[in-house]
Amino acid sequence: MITEEKQRVLDLFSRGRKLYKLMEFSAAKDFFSQALEVDPEDGPSRVYLERCLLYEDNPPPEDWDGVFVMTSK
């Protein structure tokens, strides 16, 4: 059974992920941050928040397909 807290994190993450795919990184970042306020240990929200911060400074190309390309190990 999913707790109310976990469901809230999942909902916030899902909303952030949709915005992320639309390249709306600033708005997506807000949802990932909110998810981390509910559960500071949520790994996926932390990863996507970091990617949003990266893409705000270095946007992907217009034809971006949503795939994150690692630049270092």
Rank of each mutant, 00 (worst) to 15 (best):
R46M: 12
R8L: 14
K21L: 13
W64Y: 09
E56D: 11
R15N: 13
L54K: 13
K21N: 05
G16M: 07
T3S: 15
M1P: 11
F68W: 14
N58M: 07
W64Q: 07
E50Q: 15
S14Y: 02
E62C: 01
Q7T: 05
S33G: 12
L12Y: 08
R51E: 05
G66N: 08
G16E: 04
D39T: 06
E5I: 05
F31L: 03
Y55G: 04
G66F: 04
S14W: 00
R46N: 11
D42W: 10
N58E: 10
S26R: 14
F25L: 09
S72M: 09
M70A: 14
K18G: 00
D39M: 12
M23I: 02
F13W: 12
S45A: 15
M23V: 06
F25N: 07
D39F: 06
L22G: 00
R17S: 09
T71I: 10
R17Q: 11
L19H: 05
D39E: 14
Q7M: 12
E37Y: 07
D42P: 00
S26L: 09
S14P: 01
F68E: 02
R51C: 11
L49G: 03
M70R: 15
L10G: 00
V38Y: 10
L53G: 13
V69E: 14
S33F: 04
P61E: 10
R8I: 05
E24M: 11
D11G: 01
A27S: 14
L10V: 03
E62A: 15
K29P: 00
D42A: 03
F31H: 15
T3E: 07
V67G: 00
K21Q: 12
D39H: 09
T3L: 07
S72W: 04
P40Y: 07
L54Y: 13
V69A: 10
E50I: 05
L12S: 10
S45E: 09
K73P: 01
S45K: 08
E41F: 08
D42Q: 09
F68V: 12
N58P: 00
R15W: 00
A27F: 06
E62L: 08
S14K: 12
R51I: 11
K21A: 09
E41M: 07
V38N: 10
W64C: 06
D65E: 13
D42M: 01
D11N: 14
W64K: 06
I2Y: 05
G66H: 05
K18T: 12
T71H: 10
K6V: 08
F13Q: 04
G16T: 03
D63G: 02
S26N: 12
V9E: 03
E4G: 02
P59R: 10
